[in-house]
Amino acid sequence: MRGNSLGANVGRFVLLFFLQVFVFRQVSLGWSGKEYLFIWLYPLFIAALPLRTPRPGVVALAFLAGLSVDIAYGTLGLHASAATATGYFRQFPLKFLEPKDGYKTKSTPEGRDLGQAWWVRYLAYVTVFYCVFYFSVEAFSPVFWQDILLKCLLSIPVSYLLSLILVSFLRPRL
C-alpha cells in the first residue's frame, strides 16, 4: 500500500471506498430523528494523491471519487461537490506546509520525509475543509447554519482521528 504508483492509488481508493460505503456508512449518531455524526474517510484519498499529479487532474479525480461515493449513498452531487472543492483546496495547505527544502518528488523507498507531524497538520486542513463544505452543501442554505455547525463539530473530530489512524497504516508517498 506504500508508494505513489498508479496501483497504490487505485488500491487506496478501493480500500477507502469500501471502508466508507460498507463500514462507516453504518455509523451515524443523532437524536430526535436527525443524524449529526458522520464519518468521512474517503477524503483521505484526495489528500493522499501524489504530489506530482497535475492540479486539474486532482480536481477531476476528486470529482470522480465523490461521485462514486454519491452513487453508493444515493446523494447524487453532494459528495462530488465537496470532493471537487477539496481537490481544488488541497494545493493551499500543501503550499504553506511545504518543508523548507521543498517536497522530494523523487520517490524514496520508505517515504519518511513527510512525518506524522506533517500529516497531522495537513489532514486537519483537508478534513475540516471537506466537512464544512459537505455539510454546507447538504444543508444547501445558510439558514441551517446551526445544523451545519453541530454536524461539523461532531463529525470533524471523529473523521479526523480515524483518518490519522488510517494514514499511519497507509502512509502514502506524495
Binding site: R55, V58, V59, G77, L78, A80, S81, T84
Partner: peptide, 15 residues
C-alpha cells in the same frame, strides 16, 4: 485547476 473545479462544481450543483 480552478477552471476544472469551477466547471465540475456547476455539474455538481446541477446534479
Amino acid at each position: 485547476s480552478f477552471f476544472t473545479f469551477f466547471g465540475l462544481q456547476i455539474v455538481c450543483f446541477w446534479l
